[in-house]
């Protein structure tokens, strides 16, 4: 299956490990990500004002690219665009929804974007990789596990943008199960963090790091209290805030024991034994190798 793939800016640099592990995992499951030609940054946060249409330009251009891919035969009648970054997912999907509800807005935007050869016809659907994985047979997932870690205690962390607002979320915003079901199928030990949908502070990291440190401390501690050894997430900003800011947490709380925060696809690539070059652990601030390799020895 070939599917248009929207990377988003962070996945090309700071979250390269998210991209390479995801592409490898997808490939091992028979899904080929075809990077959207000339994709542009989505804007990272959805436009929330009724009147600033200019912020919808970026998402809509990407939708037009997907339509062009179909027209050029790069993909075959595949109008879903798969995203990995939870922020991109949210921003793109919110814009798509807005355009579906407001034809007049779309007309205005199409008019200003006259250099585009095609107007956006609203046939693109924004999906997240987790939704693709959800539709893959559990046995197929299980068959791919070459490096089982049944004792590894994994706590999923959703953050905000995969789930809220309700109308664009991939699951129930109060009680999501999509990552839990995936982890269960991956035969690891699931640990529930009561704060798994609590905001990490997001872009406030640019204006006030202390906010992130205090929110992160609560989120990480709740996961650890529940017994988690690793946290998995799908958002490069959550990952950064929860992983990198542990440096600041340790400075404030000397007894704090660091915990690795991975992209869920990094864990999958490891479980599937897809090769070290697909894990990208060197980009994780808190090194996950220790806990994963220890487990490997135990399970062998």
């Amino acid at each position: 299956m070939k599917i248009p793939y929207y990377p988003g800016c962070t996945l090309k640099t700071k979250a390269k490990n998210f991209e390479i592990s995801s592409i490898a995992v997808a490939k091992s499951l028979g899904v080929e990500f075809v990077e959207i030609p000339r994709w542009n940054c989505c804007g990272a946060v959805p436009s929330l004002s009724s009147d600033d249409l200019i912020r919808h330009f970026a998402p809509i251009r990407n939708f037009i690219r997907v339509e062009e891919m179909n027209k050029a035969g790069i993909v075959d009648n595949e109008y879903r665009m798969v995203t990995l970054c939870a922020m991109c997912y949210n921003t793109l999907k919110m814009s798509n929804l807005r355009m579906r509800r407001n034809k007049e807005d779309l007309d205005k935007i199409n008019d200003v974007m006259y250099l585009e050869t095609e107007h956006y016809k609203q046939d693109v659907e924004v999906v997240h990789f987790l939704e693709i994985l959800k539709n893959i047979d559990a046995n197929k997932l299980k068959k791919n596990i070459k490096n089982p870690l049944p004792d590894l205690k994994v706590s999923p962390y959703y953050g905000c943008t995969l789930l809220r607002p309700k109308e664009i979320g991939i699951d129930d915003p109060e009680d999501p199960k999509i990552m839990e079901n995936l982890l269960t199928n991956l035969s690891v030990t699931l640990v529930n963090n009561p704060l798994k949908t609590r905001c990490c502070g997001s872009y406030q990291v640019v204006s006030d790091k202390d906010i992130i440190t205090s929110l992160g401390y609560d989120i990480l501690n709740n996961a650890k209290r529940a017994g988690a050894e690793v946290i998995v997430t799908s958002c490069p900003l959550c990952q950064f805030n929860l992983d990198r800011r542990q440096k600041d947490i340790i400075e404030l709380h000397h007894d704090f024991e660091p915990i690795p925060v991975l992209y869920f696809t990094q864990l999958m690539a490891f479980l599937f034994d897809l090769g070290e070059e697909t894990y990208g652990f060197e980009q994780n601030y808190i090194d996950p190798k220790k806990v994963l390799n220890r487990k490997e020895l135990v399970s062998n």
Binding site: K14, G43, A44, V45, C85, V205, V206, S207, K209
Partner: peptide, 28 residues
């Protein structure tokens, strides 16, 4: 403006992911 681009510490500019910067610019 809420934030001044000039005031983002050099250390932060080196490590912050793009998504944080883009989002903060749009919000602030």
């Amino acid at each position: 403006d809420r934030i001044d681009i000039k005031n983002i510490a050099e250390e932060d500019r080196k490590i912050l992911p793009q998504v944080a910067i883009v989002a903060a610019f749009r919000k602030f």
